[in-house]
C-alpha cells in the first residue's frame, strides 16, 4: 500500500521525463530547432502529467468513505478541501518544477530560460491543481479512468499553457518575462479564492451516493 502511494506520486514525473526524452529522438538532430519548441513541449508535458494525477484528489476519498465522513462532519468544507489541494500541489506540482531542469537540459533550452521555467511551473501547477479540482469533484462519482474529466478540464487549462509558454519564450528572447508570469499569478489568485468554495458547493449539491 505504501508502495502504491509512492508509485502514484512518482508516476506523473516519470511520465513527464520519459515523454520529453522521446521528443529529441523524433526531431531533426540540431539543437536549435529543439530549443525553439522546448517551452511548448515542457508545458504540454506538465499539463498531461497534471491531468494524470487529477483523478486522485478525490477518488480515493470517495471510495474509502472519507469523503462521506467529511461531508457529514459539522465543519466548514472549504478548509479541508483547500488543505487537500495544497497537499496535491506539493506532491505533484512542486516535484514537477524540481524535475523540469532535466527536461530543459534534454531539450537544450537556453540557460536564460531555466529560472522563468521553474517559477512558471511552480505557479502554473498550483493553478492546475485548483482548477482541475472543480472538474475532479464533478466527475468523482463516475469512477476511475473516465474521459469526461480530461474533456472538461482542458478548457480551464488553456490560459496557463499560453502564459506559461510565453514566460519561457520571453525569457529566451530577452524580453520582460515577469509580465506573463504576473498574469499567471492573477489566475492563481482567482482560482485560490474561488475553487475551494466551488468544490464544496458541488459536493453539497450533487447526489454522490
Amino acid at each position: 500500500m505504501a508502495r502504491s502511494t509512492f508509485e502514484a506520486t512518482i508516476a506523473p514525473i516519470v511520465f513527464m521525463c520519459m515523454g520529453v526524452s522521446l521528443i529529441p529522438l523524433a526531431l531533426p538532430p540540431d539543437s536549435a530547432s529543439h530549443s525553439s519548441i522546448a517551452p511548448g513541449i515542457v508545458w504540454i508535458m506538465v499539463l498531461l502529467a497534471s491531468l494524470m494525477s487529477l483523478e486522485r484528489i478525490f477518488t480515493f476519498d470517495y471510495e474509502d468513505g472519507s469523503l462521506e465522513q467529511l461531508l457529514i462532519s459539522p465543519q466548514l468544507l472549504t478548509q479541508p478541501i483547500f488543505g487537500k489541494l495544497v497537499a496535491h500541489w506539493v506532491m505533484t506540482g512542486v516535484p514537477m518544477a524540481l524535475a523540469s531542469p532535466i527536461m530543459a537540459f534534454v531539450l537544450s533550452l537556453p540557460a536564460d530560460g531555466y529560472i522563468p521555467m521553474i517559477l512558471s511551473i511552480v505557479i502554473g501547477s498550483a493553478y492546475l491543481s485548483l482548477a482541475g479540482s472543480v472538474c475532479a469533484s464533478l466527475t468523482v462519482s463516475l469512477g476511475r479512468g473516465g474521459f469526461l474529466l480530461p474533456i472538461t478540464v482542458i478548457p480551464l487549462y488553456m490560459p496557463i499553457i499560453i502564459f506559461g509558454t510565453a514566460t519561457i519564450d520571453f525569457a529566451i528572447s530577452g524580453m520582460d518575462w515577469l509580465f506573463p508570469l504576473a498574469v499567471m499569478g492573477t489566475f492563481l489568485c482567482l482560482a485560490t479564492a474561488i475553487c475551494p468554495i466551488v468544490v464544496a458547493a458541488i459536493f453539497r449539491s450533487t447526489p454522490l451516493f
Binding site: 500500500m1 505504501a2 502511494t5 472519507s66 462521506e68 457529514i72 459539522p74
Partner: peptide, 19 residues
C-alpha cells in the same frame, strides 16, 4: 450544522487511510 454535530455515522466504508 447542529444536527451533524449531534450524530455519528459508521457505514460499510470505514474511512480509514490504509497507509
Amino acid at each position: 450544522h447542529k444536527y451533524l454535530s449531534n450524530i455519528i455515522f459508521i457505514g460499510h466504508q470505514l474511512a480509514l487511510k490504509l497507509a
